[in-house]
Amino acid sequence: MSETNPAQPNDTPAGSGVPTAAAKRRFGGTPAQILGALKFYKVLAYATGTMLLLLCIELIVRYGFHSVLMAGGTNSVTGASHGFGFVGSDGVVTGGVNVSTLVLIVHGWMYVVYLIADFRLWSLMRWQFGRLVLIALGGVVPFLSFIVEGRIHKEVLAEVAANPKAGKRY
Protein backbone atom coordinates (compact mmCIF):
# COMPACT_ATOMS: atom_id res chain seq x y z
CA MET A 1 0.00 0.00 0.00
CA SER A 2 1.56 3.26 -1.10
CA GLU A 3 1.06 6.34 1.01
CA THR A 4 0.28 9.42 -1.03
CA ASN A 5 -0.68 12.80 0.23
CA PRO A 6 -3.66 14.25 -1.67
CA ALA A 7 -2.36 17.76 -1.01
CA GLN A 8 0.76 16.96 -3.02
CA PRO A 9 0.33 16.75 -6.78
CA ASN A 10 1.33 13.48 -8.36
CA ASP A 11 1.76 14.98 -11.80
CA THR A 12 4.73 16.65 -13.46
CA PRO A 13 5.41 20.37 -13.78
CA ALA A 14 4.26 21.82 -17.10
CA GLY A 15 6.37 20.38 -19.89
CA SER A 16 9.29 19.15 -17.72
CA GLY A 17 8.49 15.41 -17.81
CA VAL A 18 9.99 15.05 -14.30
CA PRO A 19 7.82 14.36 -11.25
CA THR A 20 7.81 17.05 -8.59
CA ALA A 21 10.07 16.51 -5.60
CA ALA A 22 7.07 16.66 -3.24
CA ALA A 23 5.42 13.68 -4.97
CA LYS A 24 8.41 11.35 -4.60
CA ARG A 25 8.43 8.48 -2.10
CA ARG A 26 11.28 8.71 0.40
CA PHE A 27 12.58 5.93 2.61
CA GLY A 28 14.55 6.27 5.83
CA GLY A 29 17.40 4.11 4.54
CA THR A 30 18.88 2.42 1.52
CA PRO A 31 17.09 -0.48 -0.20
CA ALA A 32 19.73 -2.85 1.22
CA GLN A 33 18.99 -1.62 4.76
CA ILE A 34 15.26 -2.01 4.20
CA LEU A 35 15.63 -5.55 2.84
CA GLY A 36 17.89 -6.45 5.78
CA ALA A 37 15.33 -5.08 8.23
CA LEU A 38 12.61 -7.00 6.38
CA LYS A 39 14.53 -10.28 6.73
CA PHE A 40 15.11 -9.63 10.45
CA TYR A 41 11.41 -8.81 10.89
CA LYS A 42 10.36 -11.97 9.02
CA VAL A 43 12.49 -14.26 11.20
CA LEU A 44 11.24 -12.63 14.40
CA ALA A 45 7.61 -12.69 13.22
CA TYR A 46 7.70 -16.45 12.70
CA ALA A 47 9.65 -17.11 15.91
CA THR A 48 7.37 -14.88 18.01
CA GLY A 49 4.24 -16.36 16.44
CA THR A 50 5.46 -19.87 17.19
CA MET A 51 6.32 -18.98 20.78
CA LEU A 52 2.91 -17.33 21.18
CA LEU A 53 1.21 -20.55 20.09
CA LEU A 54 3.33 -22.51 22.59
CA LEU A 55 2.38 -19.96 25.22
CA CYS A 56 -1.33 -20.47 24.48
CA ILE A 57 -0.92 -24.23 24.81
CA GLU A 58 1.01 -23.76 28.05
CA LEU A 59 -1.73 -21.55 29.51
CA ILE A 60 -4.43 -24.07 28.57
CA VAL A 61 -2.46 -26.87 30.25
CA ARG A 62 -1.68 -24.74 33.31
CA TYR A 63 -5.14 -23.33 33.98
CA GLY A 64 -7.33 -25.92 32.26
CA PHE A 65 -5.61 -29.08 33.50
CA HIS A 66 -3.72 -27.64 36.50
CA SER A 67 -0.42 -29.08 35.25
CA VAL A 68 3.01 -27.81 34.29
CA LEU A 69 5.71 -29.31 32.11
CA MET A 70 8.80 -30.23 34.14
CA ALA A 71 12.22 -31.52 33.13
CA GLY A 72 14.15 -33.32 35.83
CA GLY A 73 13.62 -32.98 39.55
CA THR A 74 12.55 -35.30 42.34
CA ASN A 75 9.11 -36.36 43.47
CA SER A 76 8.92 -35.06 47.05
CA VAL A 77 6.35 -37.71 48.09
CA THR A 78 7.95 -40.88 46.73
CA GLY A 79 11.55 -39.70 46.35
CA ALA A 80 11.68 -41.02 42.76
CA SER A 81 13.47 -38.96 40.17
CA HIS A 82 11.31 -37.25 37.57
CA GLY A 83 12.32 -37.26 33.90
CA PHE A 84 10.35 -35.09 31.50
CA GLY A 85 6.58 -34.66 31.52
CA PHE A 86 3.52 -33.01 32.96
CA VAL A 87 3.03 -32.85 36.70
CA GLY A 88 0.35 -31.31 38.86
CA SER A 89 0.90 -27.67 39.69
CA ASP A 90 0.62 -28.50 43.41
CA GLY A 91 4.43 -28.66 43.79
CA VAL A 92 4.99 -32.40 44.14
CA VAL A 93 8.17 -32.25 42.04
CA THR A 94 11.05 -30.26 43.50
CA GLY A 95 14.14 -29.14 41.66
CA GLY A 96 14.38 -29.54 37.91
CA VAL A 97 13.39 -27.02 35.27
CA ASN A 98 9.86 -25.75 34.90
CA VAL A 99 9.58 -25.75 31.08
CA SER A 100 6.20 -24.00 31.27
CA THR A 101 7.74 -20.99 32.96
CA LEU A 102 10.62 -21.08 30.50
CA VAL A 103 8.13 -20.72 27.61
CA LEU A 104 6.69 -17.63 29.31
CA ILE A 105 10.10 -16.02 29.74
CA VAL A 106 11.36 -16.82 26.24
CA HIS A 107 8.20 -15.47 24.61
CA GLY A 108 8.43 -12.25 26.63
CA TRP A 109 12.00 -11.53 25.63
CA MET A 110 11.42 -12.61 22.05
CA TYR A 111 8.50 -10.18 21.85
CA VAL A 112 10.81 -7.36 22.95
CA VAL A 113 13.22 -8.20 20.11
CA TYR A 114 10.22 -8.49 17.76
CA LEU A 115 9.19 -4.94 18.72
CA ILE A 116 12.71 -3.73 17.89
CA ALA A 117 12.46 -5.41 14.46
CA ASP A 118 9.02 -3.84 13.95
CA PHE A 119 10.29 -0.39 14.86
CA ARG A 120 13.33 -0.66 12.60
CA LEU A 121 11.28 -1.67 9.56
CA TRP A 122 8.60 0.92 10.32
CA SER A 123 11.12 3.75 10.65
CA LEU A 124 12.99 2.79 7.48
CA MET A 125 9.75 2.63 5.49
CA ARG A 126 8.46 5.88 7.04
CA TRP A 127 4.95 4.55 7.56
CA GLN A 128 2.27 6.08 9.75
CA PHE A 129 2.12 5.22 13.47
CA GLY A 130 -0.99 3.05 13.08
CA ARG A 131 0.99 0.62 10.96
CA LEU A 132 3.50 0.14 13.79
CA VAL A 133 0.65 -0.65 16.21
CA LEU A 134 -0.83 -3.21 13.79
CA ILE A 135 2.53 -4.91 13.31
CA ALA A 136 3.17 -4.95 17.07
CA LEU A 137 -0.20 -6.65 17.68
CA GLY A 138 1.09 -9.59 15.65
CA GLY A 139 3.09 -10.72 18.67
CA VAL A 140 0.14 -10.79 21.07
CA VAL A 141 -2.73 -12.14 18.95
CA PRO A 142 -2.33 -15.82 18.01
CA PHE A 143 -1.76 -16.46 14.27
CA LEU A 144 -1.78 -12.71 13.50
CA SER A 145 2.00 -12.48 13.17
CA PHE A 146 1.94 -14.97 10.28
CA ILE A 147 -0.82 -13.06 8.46
CA VAL A 148 0.66 -9.60 9.03
CA GLU A 149 4.15 -10.77 8.09
CA GLY A 150 2.94 -12.07 4.73
CA ARG A 151 1.21 -8.81 3.88
CA ILE A 152 4.03 -6.59 5.11
CA HIS A 153 6.63 -8.65 3.22
CA LYS A 154 4.77 -8.30 -0.09
CA GLU A 155 4.12 -4.61 0.49
CA VAL A 156 7.73 -3.75 1.34
CA LEU A 157 9.07 -5.62 -1.68
CA ALA A 158 6.54 -3.88 -3.95
CA GLU A 159 7.33 -0.41 -2.55
CA VAL A 160 11.10 -0.90 -2.80
CA ALA A 161 10.75 -2.18 -6.38
CA ALA A 162 8.39 0.65 -7.36
CA ASN A 163 10.63 3.35 -5.86
CA PRO A 164 14.23 2.35 -6.63
CA LYS A 165 15.58 5.87 -6.06
CA ALA A 166 13.64 6.59 -2.87
CA GLY A 167 16.35 5.39 -0.49
CA LYS A 168 18.90 7.63 1.22
CA ARG A 169 22.31 7.90 -0.38
CA TYR A 170 25.32 7.65 1.94
Rank of each mutant, 00 (worst) to 15 (best):
L137S: 07
L115A: 11
N163S: 04
L137F: 13
I57F: 15
K165I: 01
A71R: 09
F27K: 02
M51R: 00
F65T: 00
V106E: 00
V99K: 03
R151T: 10
E3P: 01
L102M: 12
V112H: 06
V93N: 01
V141G: 05
I135E: 06
Y41I: 08
V106H: 00
R126M: 10
G96F: 10
L157I: 05
V106C: 05
F84V: 15
V97T: 12
A21C: 02
V140N: 00
K154H: 06
T78R: 12
L55V: 04
E3I: 13
A136K: 10
A45W: 06
R26Q: 12
G138K: 10
E155C: 09
R169C: 02
V43H: 00
Q8N: 11
A80K: 15
F146S: 11
E149T: 04
F119H: 08
V43G: 01
S89F: 00
T94H: 00
T74S: 09
L38W: 06
V18C: 06
M70C: 03
V18R: 14
L115G: 14
F65H: 06
V106A: 11
F129E: 13
H153Y: 13
V43S: 01
L134A: 12
C56M: 14
L115V: 12
V43Q: 02
G28H: 07
F84T: 09
R169Y: 03
V106R: 03
A158T: 07
T4G: 08
E155T: 11
L115Q: 14
R126I: 02
T30H: 13
R120G: 00
G85C: 05
T20D: 06
Q128M: 04
P6R: 15
L53N: 00
I147T: 09
G79D: 06
V156F: 10
G130W: 13
D90G: 09
G88D: 09
L137C: 15
Y41R: 07
D11H: 12
A37T: 02
V61A: 15
A21F: 07
E159C: 07
T12G: 04
I116R: 11
K165T: 04
G88R: 04
A37P: 01
L52T: 07
Y63R: 06
M1E: 12
I135W: 01
I116W: 15
L132S: 11
G96L: 06
P13A: 05
Q128L: 08
T78C: 11
G28M: 06
T20Q: 11
F84Q: 14
D118R: 04
Y170I: 09
P31L: 08
P142N: 09
E155F: 05
T94A: 01
G15I: 06
P31M: 10
R62H: 08
F27L: 07
I57E: 03
Y63M: 05
I105G: 04
E58I: 10
S16P: 08
G72Q: 08
R126T: 03
G28R: 09
M125Y: 05
A166Q: 01
D90I: 03
G130Q: 13
L137M: 14
N163I: 04
A162R: 13
N98W: 13
